[in-house]
Each structure stands twice: as structure tokens, then as C-alpha cells.
Design a protein around this nucleic acid. Structure first.
Lengths: 340, 340
DNA sequence: CGATTTTGGGTAATCGTTTTCCCCTCTCCT
DNA sequence: AGGAGAGGGGAAAACGATTACCCAAAATCG
């Protein structure tokens, strides 16, 4: 157990096995038939020395890349983390490593810095998480020389970029229509800092309202923190005409509900509140949260699939879009159940 | 805007700038003085061509690695995600990329597969998240030829491995002592699937109980899911002697509380419940959750700092340990407040 | 059984960088 | 003015792998 043992390279293995360097390479990449006896010797040497191929050198010569990169505006929020998890799982199954690069903001220097960091590595392709403005900016600025796919909540896909999507627009519309169907005159909306006007959730909400001829209240903007939902919830609680609130995500919904309750408004009797994402714990809230279930893990897996295809050279810019499903629980109720 | 433009290499830049290849390299790495005029020309060519150094080739020749790897048993749970976020931020500031590798289980093939995946890339060093059994197994199996540091919740650090730690043991003890100080005869414990008997939280809990001469109830084992906490909570609700419960994390605590409430036991009047982690939303629970705040982002930053030092060759296996702080809220109360 | 084809494996070239040499030129000093 | 010293930059080697090329031996065929 020498402490600072030099890490073995191909020539060490070749020497140990008594063969030439290319033969070892051929055994390891199984690129050409090698006599069983030699193969045996090589494999033994590989195991004895604990040799691991240096994929940097490999990439340099062969151009075969063994890493995919994820470019994203954030990592630890629920949706981001789950999507990254899905990507990592799919990549690992395919024998690829995953490298994470965070785009600090949507400013040009930040975007370029992240892109530089990623492209300086030998990546086979890049998945950009288009959940927020930094992600959006990264998609726009990304050079066409490297295979890229988008994963996000958008609907429209202008160019020829393959995309794995969650149909947030439809989901937002469904959610809003559901609340309207309960008899609410309109639905207020607290947005999370996603892509601004381009957020599918917000778009769907607005289109449902206008389609139903309902008034469109101004959009309230929260951060990702539940506390900011709480703050906005305090304001909403004071407005008597607010009877239904569609929130940009579960954390914010929790904040809003908490504020409403603190102000003495009952949920769902006085005000119905919906979340978005269906984090595991919101089913246990009191009231349990009506929300929209998004399968982020699947999103990540689909994105990786598309990237694999793009790397293989499939030019047919296929895309996949999945519609999240409503999960009806107890934070929503018919308008006027307050009287009952 | 050619679509499939070959990505430029150093010799392209050299040609465009009318200098030799090594000169370009010297400019980019600022390894040797280059005349201002030449430097100028080179930089212009670099910008014009949008050249980005190929860090695989760079690593091959110079041995300078520009990636750190994170080896972990999971990625999307709160603590994991926040720690990874902290590592990424620190690494990005230092100009390094982060590669993530998940260790599927603590079985030997899974551990080796993850280690192989990581070590085949040109990583400067590795941070292993020792929050669970796969992480623990990875630490044990990791070869000494590559700089490595451990980040986790352990206390003991046998060998000479630098470690960034959260003192879960002390925190668990503090939490338990706090509950005992409220007059509870003993404290029940619902553990999350961390390192089994080696979990600092569980160790601290047990040591506080034995130190106080209180009976040590059997440990209940939950998964990471709130639903599993709920399940165990139903059982606990039926035992009248259960008046205080220390949970392995916030999600489980929420499940337990939910079950207690569903069974008609009041929190905190009948039963006090504590969580662990202080996720942002638990402050908004009703009752708001008493818990232990862990600064995972800081943990990640500290781990990266130690790794940097280790890579630089600092052999003094320094470690850093931070004690999480109790956050007292409303899910805990004095024993017997039920009567009041 | 001799000539031609296959086959397995070694030698050398290659990938995109960095680094070592070395040479040329410019400066400075006596 | 001539020689020593220093500094800047180019040519070539090196890094650790893969791949092109080639040759000897075995296999196939007439």
C-alpha cells in the first residue's frame, strides 16, 4: 500500500503483460480481435495494477467524449435537483459522466463564463435547463458546434433544437380552469422567478382567464423561498375579493397558505390555493396541498435520450413533451363554501 | 454562422495571429513573458475564432487538472443538494468544473463502478459525501493515489483523511438534552437511512439518553420520504408513553407530526417533535418545527477548501467541524402541557 | 506443394496541448 | 567595439492514449 504511487498508464500495463501498447488498447476497447491468451494476460495486468484508462488522453486522440454537461441556473431547488438526478442516472447507465455548471445570472459575462467552463472540457454534449432566465440566456448564447438539447417547462421551440419539455402551459391552464370551475370569479397568481413572461405556468394561467372572460389580476412575483410567499400572502389576505390563488411552486404556496391562516382566512373554505411541483411533503400539509405533479426525473431521462440521439448524429430534431397532471387535494374547494 | 464549423485549435489561432503555437500557449497560460504586440495579436485571434482551450489535451500534457469530482450516494435530497451547491460555487470561483458521480449502493460493484467513472476523468481531486452507507463504502474503497476529502456528518476521523464535518453527534445530543430538559421521561427516535449505527444523530441521541439515565427506546427506521415518517408516526401515536420524538430529518418529522395529528394527538401539547436540517419551509408549518439547522452550503465550501489544500500538497490533514445550532420553534413544549 | 490471401500484433504517426531546448538578438558593461 | 548576459520566441519532444500502416506467420487455394 504505497501512499504516493504513480498512477499506472497503458505502457505500464503493456510491460507487465509483455505485449505492446496498442494491443492493450485493443483489448480494452475491443476494437480488434486479440488472441485469447494475450487478452488474458492483459486483463490480469490491468487488474493487478488497478489501471484505469485516462479518458482525457482518450478523448484527445479519438474524439470520443465520455462526459455530458448540465448547464443550469440553479441546482438545489426541488425541480432542478430532481431533473439533474434523472440526467445523472441515465448518463451513468450509458457509461457517461455528468459535469455541472451553474450560470450565475443572465448577464453576458456570467453566461459566457459558464459556457467556457463547460466547453473547455471534452464534453460529448450539453443539456441546458431552461427553467429560468440564466438558462434561457445560456440556450441563446450556446454555440452550434456542440450537440445541445434543452430541458425545461416551455412549450414553444422555435429553432431546430431538440427539447425535452414539461407542458407547464397546459398544466397552468388546467389548474386555473379547475379553480374557475369551482366557481371562483378569478384566480390570482404568485409567480416564481422563472422566465418572466415566458413562464409556461404564467402563460397558461393567463390564457385560461382570458378564455373564460375572467379578469386578469396583476402577477405577484415571489422568490424561490417560502418566506417570500408568506410576505405576498399577507397582502393577498387583506383583499376580500381574493378567493383563489395559483402559486408558481409548492414552497411559495405553503408560504401563502401560512400567511392566509395567520390572517384568519381559512383554506380552503375562504381561499383556495394551488401549488406546483408536488413535492413529497406537501401531501402531508394541513390542508393537504392541491398541486400539479411534475415528473422531473423523467424529464432528465428524456433530455439525456435526446442528447444521445443528437450526439449520434440524428438530425431530426425530435422533441418530447409531457403534460403534468393535476393532483387534487384539500387546499382547494368550491367558491362560497365559506358560507357553509 | 456556419452550422458545423470545426472547433478551432491552438494551431488555428497561431496561424491567424502569425505566431508559433507555443507562443499562443504562453499567452493563454501566461507562463512566460510575451511581447505586448504579439500578445495583442494572439488575443484578437482567440476572440475572433472563439477559441477555447481543450482542457483534455491540456490535462494530458501538463497534468494540471481542472475538475473536481463529487462522489455521493444521492443528489436530490435537501442536504445533499445544498452541499453539492456549496461545492459547485466554491469550485466555480476557483475556475474548476464539478463532476458528479452517484454511488448506487454500498455493494462492491457499485462502489467500484462509481470510482472508475470518476477516476477515468482527469480530476484534480475528489470530495466524497459521507452521509450514507454508499458514501462510507466509497471512502473506504477509494485509492490513495488521488487527493480526496470527506464531507459529512461524522465526528470521528480515524486516518489522515482531511474532512469537513457537521457535528451531528453534538447536535443530536443537544436536541435530545433539550427535550429531556422540557421534562420528558425519554425521547423516541426515528432515524433516516444514513449510516446506521454510525449516524451522528443517532449516536448523539443515545449518548444523551444514557448520560441522563433515561431509557433508550428502540430506534425506528424511516426512509427519506415523509410518507415513511407518517407510517411510523401512526404506530408512535398509539403508544401513550411517547411524549417526545427526535426525527432524523425534517421530512420525516413532518410525516410523524401529520400522523400524530391524524390520530388525535396534539403537537406540541401531547407530543413534542423535533426535526433535523431546517429546510426553509418547516418554519411555516403548523406547528412551526423545532429543528437543528445545518449549513450544508458552508459544508460544501469547507470541503472544497480542504481539497484545494490537499491538491496543493498540504500534507497536514487538517479538518474542520462545525456544530449545527438548535432552532427552537413551536413543535416542542414542556412535558405535561397537555394537562394545561 | 508453392503462391495468395487472411490475420494478429508490432511500429510509427497522430490528437491538441505544454514544456524543454536552443538560437538569435538586444542590452549592457568594460 | 567586443564579449557576456538576458530575454523572447520558434522547433521539437512529450503526455497517454488511439489508429493507420505494415510485416510475418498461418491459413487457404489451385
Amino acid at each position: 500500500m504505497e501512499a504516493k504511487n504513480r498512477v499506472p498508464v497503458l505502457s505500464d500495463v503493456a510491460k507487465a503483460a509483455g505485449v505492446s501498447v496498442p494491443t492493450v488498447s485493443r483489448v480494452l476497447t475491443s476494437s480488434k480481435y486479440v488472441a485469447p491468451e494475450l487478452r488474458e494476460r492483459v486483463m490480469k495486468a490491468v487488474n493487478d495494477l488497478e489501471y484505469r484508462p485516462n479518458s482525457a488522453a482518450r478523448a484527445t486522440r479519438s474524439g470520443k467524449r465520455s462526459m455530458v454537461a448540465v448547464l443550469t441556473g440553479a441546482t438545489s431547488n426541488y425541480g432542478y435537483a430532481k431533473t439533474i438526478e434523472g440526467i445523472e442516472l441515465a448518463a451513468r447507465k450509458a457509461g457517461l459522466s455528468v459535469i455541472i455548471a451553474v450560470v450565475e445570472s443572465d448577464s453576458e459575462p456570467a453566461v459566457n463564463a459558464a459556457i467556457d467552463l463547460v466547453l473547455s472540457q471534452p464534453v460529448a454534449g450539453v443539456i441546458i435547463l431552461e427553467f429560468d432566465r440564466p438558462g434561457l440566456a445560456a440556450v441563446k448564447a450556446f454555440p452550434s458546434s456542440v450537440p445541445m438539447v434543452v430541458a425545461g417547462g416551455g412549450t414553444r421551440r422555435s429553432g431546430s433544437t431538440p427539447s425535452a419539455l414539461l407542458d407547464e402551459r397546459s398544466a397552468g391552464r388546467d389548474a386555473t380552469e379547475y379553480l374557475l370551475s369551482l366557481g371562483h370569479k378569478t384566480v390570482h397568481h404568485v409567480a416564481v422567478p422563472t422566465m418572466g413572461k415566458h413562464s409556461g405556468r404564467t402563460q397558461g394561467w393567463k390564457s385560461a382567464l382570458t378564455a373564460a372572460g375572467a379578469p386578469v389580476p396583476p402577477v405577484l412575483h415571489a422568490t424561490w423561498e417560502p418566506a417570500s410567499g408568506y410576505k405576498l400572502g399577507l397582502d393577498l389576505a387583506d383583499q376580500d375579493d381574493v378567493t383563489a390563488i395559483f402559486c408558481g411552486n409548492d414552497d411559495v404556496a405553503i408560504g401563502v397558505i401560512s400567511a392566509l391562516l395567520d390572517r384568519g382566512r381559512r383554506v380552503p373554505e375562504d381561499v383556495s390555493v394551488m401549488g406546483f411541483d408536488d413535492q413529497p411533503h406537501v401531501a402531508l400539509w394541513r390542508p393537504s396541498l392541491t398541486t400539479v405533479r411534475q415528473d422531473f426525473g423523467d424529464l432528465g431521462a428524456r433530455a439525456f435520450q435526446l442528447l444521445s440521439a443528437a450526439v449520434e448524429g440524428a438530425d431530426g430534431s425530435s422533441s418530447s413533451i409531457v403534460k403534468p397532471e393535476l393532483v387534487l387535494r384539500n387546499s382547494t374547494a368550491a367558491a362560497g363554501s365559506s358560507a357553509a
